[in-house]
């Protein structure tokens, strides 16, 4: 048997998987890094992005590309607004207590998920890809849309990187992450930074959801797997470390793609979850991160 076509397919699928994962996990990592809280509702923002893409596709007539383009901007903005509101209404009021935040975001998880069930219904729904060009390889045809996902994800991450490193906003975020008290003393409105970071984190997940939906249908329960995989990535990459998160997303996405070709996805999920739990127990600073001070 010739392995080459399988490997190529696994590699391509892995890259697509890794790009979406990178966006979602970066959102989680950013929130953890700056705010020191774990957002268990993060996967629901991903789901809302996907549902938003479907809504846009339904509401906007004409070629699918237009609806998709609108969705890519509107859905993350809407989700960001929801996250902003949730931060003000819930997280700020409990003072970002780490354990309380987890309990509250579990509550938020249920509220968002069940609201989607009420509004969107229990069925999975497909969205047409904005274009349906097929790339030819010697063995199989491959949707060029999937490669488009990779490109958009890389562009978004590059944009995030520039914002964090080159802009005043990024400087404020990093200052808050580094030392909350001092940032406050320098006149930074830490509460606003937190709301903004929470919103940006959610928007990244939502963008991932929009990108994924022409490839994989929208469903109200689709937020669970991205959440768990993002946990895996963020923990392996070192809690709160953005370069670590990116590296880990590529690693996990690729290996997950490879494993899923050869093993059952459930088995792959069992192995990776168990592995990561053990990482957290025995090497809490992650595989790539440095030892915590």
């Amino acid at each position: 048997m010739d392995l080459a076509p399988y490997l190529l397919l696994a590699l391509l699928e892995g890259m697509v998987q890794a790009s979406v994962l990178m966006l979602t996990a970066l959102g989680l990592s950013l929130v953890f890094g700056v705010m020191r809280v774990v957002n268990v509702a993060h996967g629901q923002f991903f789901m809302l992005g996907a549902v938003g893409a479907w809504l846009c596709a339904q509401a906007i007539p004409g070629p699918p590309a237009i609806g998709f383009a609108v969705a890519l901007i509107a859905a993350p903005l809407a989700v960001g607004a929801i996250a902003w509101a949730a931060d003000r209404a819930i997280l700020r009021r409990i003072g970002y207590d780490p354990e309380g935040t987890i309990v509250s975001t579990i509550g938020l998880l249920y509220i968002l998920q069940q609201s989607a069930l009420i509004g969107f219904g229990p069925d999975a729904r497909a969205v047409d890809p904005p274009f349906s060009h097929t790339l030819r390889t010697p063995w199989f045809g491959y949707s060029s849309y999937k490669l488009f996902i990779v490109a958009v994800a890389i562009a978004l991450v590059a944009a995030l990187w520039l914002i964090l490193r080159r802009t005043r906003l990024g400087l404020i975020m990093r200052a808050t992450q580094f030392d909350r008290e001092t940032a406050q003393n320098f006149g930074i409105r830490v509460d606003r930074v937190y709301s903004a970071v929470f919103a940006v984190g959610a928007m990244l997940a939502a963008a991932g959801g929009v990108l994924v939906v022409p490839n994989q249908q929208a469903h109200y329960l689709m937020g669970t797997d991205p959440l768990l995989l993002s946990f895996v990535v963020v923990i392996v990459g070192g809690l709160g470390s953005l370069p670590g998160t990116i590296a880990a997303a590529v690693l996990i996405g690729l290996s997950d793609g490879l494993l899923s070709v050869f093993f059952s996805p459930t088995l792959a999920a069992i192995a990776s979850t168990l592995l990561v739990a053990l990482v957290l127990i025995f090497r809490p600073q992650g595989l790539f991160g440095r030892a915590a001070a």
């Binding site: 509250s104 579990i106 249920y110 998920q113 609201s115 009420i118």
Partner: peptide, 18 residues
């Protein structure tokens, strides 16, 4: 009444915690 009863679970988690 509804299949989305978990929404109440969510709201209660937030409310009690707060």
């Amino acid at each position: 009444v509804t299949s989305a009863y978990l929404i109440v679970v969510g709201a209660l988690l937030i409310a009690v915690n707060q």
